[in-house]
């Protein structure tokens, strides 16, 4: 590890980077930008989260390339490993099916946002270009005693107060999250009899919900029962399937069957009439 580090250190001290790093930058940088774009453009939150995780891993590689070994590892372990998983967890909790429709509801918001984002990027780029950074000291000297040791020395001396306060902040955040999401049960849970009585009192869905399937021709749980007019009744399938959008609709089939039946009977009646007429 130390040998590897020392060679990297000599590399990093240079004003220009090695060709390997350049290749790595251009390849991974492109992927990172694509991942970022996918994060904001993917329809489902899960996909966004995965794309973001990818971008973050690439950023971890860049940290390593820039001599921030500790941060690189932390980025992978804490950010990608813990925080993004937390994100995924919340996505699942909130409802994975809640696909975010990308249709814009606020008039002009998308164009304005794109314009602002683009303008901001251009401005930042112009600012960086304008700064004319010509000198890169490299981290060779700073990382000489080891990156982690260097950081630790700084954190526990120069930045010790900031460190302590940040720790307090973290604790506060943890407590705050608990306060926010904790729900006190102020009353006893209802038992089955009371729930039944309440249902009677409210007067809706007194009998059990209707069963799925249509006239016993389908008994799959994901097929909505048909109402007398041929339209499917959402109530007959379970809520989870409904939310996932995994309901199969057979109403068109049933209606066309009905139409065919009527046509057949009409033809038959017509034939009977013809027979009567011929008699």
């Amino acid at each position: 590890m130390s040998a590897l580090a020392s060679t990297a250190v000599t590399d990093l001290a240079a004003y220009t980077t090695s060709t390997g790093e350049a290749v790595q930058f251009w390849v991974l940088g492109t992927v990172a930008v694509i991942g970022a774009l996918c994060t904001i453009l993917m329809k489902k939150a899960v996909h966004s989260a995965l794309c973001l995780a990818g971008t973050m891993i690439i950023l971890a590689v860049f940290y390593l390339a820039n001599g921030a070994y500790f941060l690189g590892i932390v980025q992978v372990v804490v950010y990608t490993g813990a925080i993004m998983m937390l994100f995924l967890f919340v996505v699942m909790l909130v409802g994975v099916t809640a696909a975010d429709s990308l249709k814009e509801t606020i008039k002009g918001q998308r164009w304005l946002a794109a314009l602002c984002g683009l303008g901001f990027a251009v401005l930042l780029t112009a600012g960086i270009g304008n700064a004319a950074i010509t000198e890169f000291n490299g981290l060779g000297a700073a990382n000489a005693g080891g990156n982690v040791e260097g950081l630790a020395a700084l954190i526990f001396t120069k930045y010790v107060f900031a460190f302590e306060i940040t720790g307090a902040l973290l604790i506060t955040a943890a407590v705050g999250a608990m306060v926010l999401t904790h729900r006190e049960r102020t009353e006893r849970a209802l038992n089955q009899r009371e729930m039944a009585e309440r249902r009677v009192r409210e007067g809706k869905h007194l009998p059990p919900l209707p069963a799925p399937g249509v006239y016993a021709r389908h008994n799959a749980v994901d097929i909505a029962g048909l109402l007398p007019d041929g339209t499917p009744s959402e109530l007959t399938v379970m809520q989870t399937l409904r939310q996932r959008g995994q309901i199969r609709d057979v109403s068109g089939e049933a209606l066309s069957d009905l139409a065919a039946l009527e046509q057949r009977s009409a033809e038959r009646l017509g034939r009977d009439r013809e027979q009567e007429a011929s008699k």
Partner: peptide, 20 residues
């Protein structure tokens, strides 16, 4: 490659995030 490219990348990612 000039390491300042990292800054360009950072600003680009930042703008993308803001737009998002």
């Amino acid at each position: 490659m000039n390491p300042v490219n990292y800054l360009y990348l950072a600003s680009l990612l930042f703008a993308i995030g803001a737009t998002g």
